[in-house]
Design a protein around this nucleic acid. Structure first.
Lengths: 160, 160
DNA sequence: GCAATAAGGTTGTAGCTACAACCTTTTGCT
DNA sequence: AGCAAAAGGTTGTAGCTACAACCTTATTGC
């Protein structure tokens, strides 16, 4: 089985994407950690809860929306719970399930934190791209997500 | 200071990019871990060494090319050294510096591992994009890298 | 010349994630 | 009904990364 290697164009695109994968998470994490003692993933969990009805979601649904495994989410939510940012309670309809809800303190915290985070995203992503490039980026990442997560088990943000 | 929030187009592009940041590393890592007991970062270190003259680079240069901090690289190289994949030796020109060199076993290992890794990259990135999108991706990631790493301290893969 | 500072690396450790094991409740089958 | 399998979560732990502290050798300033 002979390998088809990457040509120059393919290699450049891939190397740059790999560099972004390596560097961008650190940039996001360090702003949030400095300004709010949060990781980007923790922020994202709070953001998804804040947009949900009653600021509540089942753990499984929350894991999907944050593109994470359930064990990872479980650990993160426990830490957020210890900090008074979220609370967990059993789901009435299904005794197996657990609901996670953003507390009042958590709601206050994400409202205080969001502006700085959005500014960071603008600074490094939105503002450095043209509107056309932004649309291209949505299409490109949509295609990649479709192949990385074919069954749509995780986030559905890439679905039309 | 009032915040300018993200509109729908901006939000979609960013949510999808964030999902890729979260999911793609795991896909790459698990293929390499399964087939070669390597993380993607370890593979990348080996790849950069394999393309260098004498398969040797100074730690600082290697850290730059792999978009990593020196402490992280130092730990990784130590583990690779324990496995006989790389070797370290003092740099003759500068007594402070350390050189890292890919061993014969390391060279053999990356040659054996590369086809599977390239196939994974093709499957999830290259093959799901058109040639135009690939060029767009290179430009977009280039712009992001320029803002994330303005001084060009790290990788120079984004420079024209 | 010789401190002071910078450059190049290594090491220790806290904290986060992946993976596996486990428990409980629900669903499906017959 | 009753039992097997699936769904929903949690917990334990190994391993990797970030951050800070530290050591050694070069370079700079005066």
């Amino acid at each position: 089985m002979s390998t088809r290697w990457l040509d120059d164009t393919e290699m450049t695109a891939w190397l740059r994407l790999a560099a972004v994968l390596e560097l961008l998470p650190g940039v996001l994490d360090s702003q949030l950690r400095r300004d709010a003692e949060l990781t980007h993933y923790e922020y994202f969990v709070m953001a998804m809860l804040s947009e949900a009805p009653k600021r509540t979601l089942r753990m499984t649904a929350l894991a999907q929306r944050t593109n994470a495994t359930l064990p990872r989410l479980s650990h993160v939510v426990k830490r957020l719970e210890d900090r008074g940012i979220v609370e967990r309670f059993p789901c009435p309809e299904d005794a197996r399930a657990t609901n996670a809800r953003l507390t009042a303190a958590g709601w206050k915290k994400i409202r205080a934190t969001a502006p700085g985070h959005v500014a960071t995203v603008r600074q490094h992503i939105i503002n450095v791209l043209t509107p056309e490039q932004l649309a291209q980026l949505a299409d490109i990442t949509g295609a990649i997500l479709k192949s990385v997560d074919p069954e749509g088990n995780l986030s559905e943000v890439y679905q039309r």
